[in-house]
Amino acid sequence: MTDLDIAEVARRTGVPPSTLRYYEERGLIASTGRRGLRRQFDPGVLERLGLIALGRSAGFSIAEMTRMFTPLGRPEIDRRVLAARADEIDRTIRELTAVRDSLRHAAECPAPSHLECPTFRRLVRTAAAGASRAAPRPALPRRRRAAEAG
């Protein structure tokens, strides 16, 4: 298969050319050269971009992925790091499930006031206890901090 033009890579992956250039600057991907002014990429870049997308959806920062990926070689991903991230996602799922259940119950509870509902009060106590026992959370990636601040 021949090299792919940056526009073709963007079209196939949905990743904007500006992001592809940024990933290249950070060492996550490498172009094979240029045809005119346009960067060319080996077709293997599509799989690598899939790995980057998976890493981003798992909450890995660009800096973390840069440490895992070598520019031309296969990613060297520490399995302990993956297990730790999976554990973090499990904790988040449990927390969000409790929040979802509380909201659904509050929306459907026939009690005159939510605070008069024993089930809702138990959910609130459980959430409060979980919040006080929760381990310190790692710093959020910059994009999440900015979104939460705004």
Rank of each mutant, 00 (worst) to 15 (best):
L46V: 13
G55W: 04
M68E: 06
T126A: 15
S102R: 08
V124Q: 08
I93S: 02
L46K: 11
G59F: 08
R80Y: 01
M65G: 01
D5S: 12
I6D: 07
F41I: 10
R48S: 06
C109A: 05
V9N: 11
A7D: 13
V81K: 01
A146E: 15
Y22V: 09
P141Q: 09
A128D: 07
R121D: 07
A139M: 09
G14F: 01
R39W: 10
G50V: 01
R100C: 04
P75S: 03
L72A: 12
H105G: 05
S132N: 00
C109E: 03
L4Y: 09
S31D: 10
D90I: 03
S61R: 08
T92C: 02
S132L: 00
L103C: 07
I6P: 08
F69V: 00
R38E: 06
A131N: 06
R91P: 03
R48V: 03
R48A: 03
R145A: 13
V124S: 05
A86F: 01
E47M: 02
R35W: 06
L82V: 15
D90H: 04
P112K: 02
L28F: 08
P110I: 01
R56V: 00
E76C: 08
A10P: 05
E76V: 12
R11C: 09
R35Q: 14
S113A: 11
D87W: 03
I62K: 01
S113K: 07
V81Y: 00
A111Q: 06
A147Q: 15
L4S: 07
A107G: 13
E76S: 13
L28H: 12
H114E: 02
I62N: 08
R145F: 05
G14S: 14
T2Q: 07
E64T: 12
R94I: 00
I93D: 06
V124K: 03
L4C: 06
R35L: 09
R38C: 07
F60M: 06
L123N: 11
G55F: 05
L72H: 12
E88Y: 10
T13Q: 09
S57F: 02
D42E: 14
A106V: 06
S61V: 06
G50L: 04
